Simulated scan of single mutants.
Amino acid sequence: MTDSLLSLLLIIVLCGHFVGLILGYKRRKTTLTLAYVNAIFVVLSFVFWAITSWNNNLYNIAIYEGLLICFEACILSFALYSIKGFEDKTYVKIINSIGFGIHVLAIMAMLYYIRLFKFDQLF
C-alpha cells in the first residue's frame, strides 16, 4: 500500500467523520450520530489490527498497543451504550465527543505524518 493510497483512504475516513458530524447537527441528534461513527470506526480499526497482527505471526502485544486497544474498546462500549438508548446521559455525550475528537485528531496527525515523510511502501 503506497502512501498516496493511504492518504486517499484517510481523507475519505475524515470526510466521513465530518459528514456524520454535520448530519448529526442538522438532525439534532449529534450524540447518536457520533456514536454510530465511533462504533463503525472502532470496529474497522479492530478488523485492521486483527488482519495485520495475524499476518505478523507475532502474538505479543506492546504496552502502547494494548492501551490503544483498551481505549478503543472503551469508546466502542460507550458508543454501543449510546446507541442502545442512553444518549441523553451527560457522561455518555462527553465520552462520545472526546472519542470522536481523538479519532479526528489522530486521522489528521496520520495525514500530516504521511505528507511530511514520504514512503515508498507502507507494508
Results as ranks from 00 to 15, higher is better:
L10C: 05
I11Q: 07
L14G: 08
C15F: 01
C15H: 00
G16Q: 00
H17D: 00
H17W: 02
F18Y: 07
V19S: 08
V19W: 05
V19E: 03
G20D: 07
G20Y: 09
L21R: 06
L23S: 05
G24A: 03
G24E: 01
Y25V: 01
K26S: 05
R27G: 00
R27Q: 07
R27A: 12
R27E: 03
R28L: 09
R28F: 07
K29E: 10
T30A: 08
T30V: 13
T31D: 01
L32A: 05
T33C: 08
L34K: 05
L34G: 04
L34Q: 01
A35I: 03
A39G: 07
I40Q: 04
F41E: 11
V42A: 13
V42R: 12
V43K: 11
V43H: 13
L44H: 11
L44Q: 13
L44T: 15
A50T: 14
T52N: 12
T52V: 13
T52K: 09
N55G: 07
N56S: 15
N56G: 14
N57W: 04
Y59P: 05
Y59V: 06
N60Q: 10
N60S: 13
I61G: 06
Y64M: 15
E65M: 14
G66T: 12
L67A: 15
L67D: 11
L68G: 14
L68W: 15
I69D: 05
I69L: 15
I69G: 10
C70G: 13
C70P: 03
E72Y: 15
I75M: 05
S77D: 06
S77N: 02
F78V: 14
F78N: 02
F78P: 02
A79K: 05
A79Q: 05
Y81D: 04
Y81I: 08
S82E: 06
S82P: 02
I83M: 07
I83R: 07
K84T: 02
K84R: 11
K84F: 01
G85S: 09
F86W: 15
F86Y: 10
F86E: 09
E87R: 10
D88W: 09
K89A: 11
T90S: 08
Y91M: 06
Y91V: 02
Y91D: 07
Y91C: 06
V92Y: 02
V92K: 04
V92E: 03
I94P: 06
I95Y: 04
N96W: 15
N96D: 12
S97D: 05
S97G: 12
S97F: 12
I98Y: 10
G99A: 08
F100H: 13
F100Q: 04
H103S: 09
V104Y: 02
L105A: 11
A106L: 12
A106F: 08
A109L: 09
A109G: 01
L111T: 01
Y113G: 08
Y113I: 02
R115V: 00
F117H: 14
F117R: 12
K118M: 00
K118I: 04
F119L: 02
F119P: 00
F119S: 01
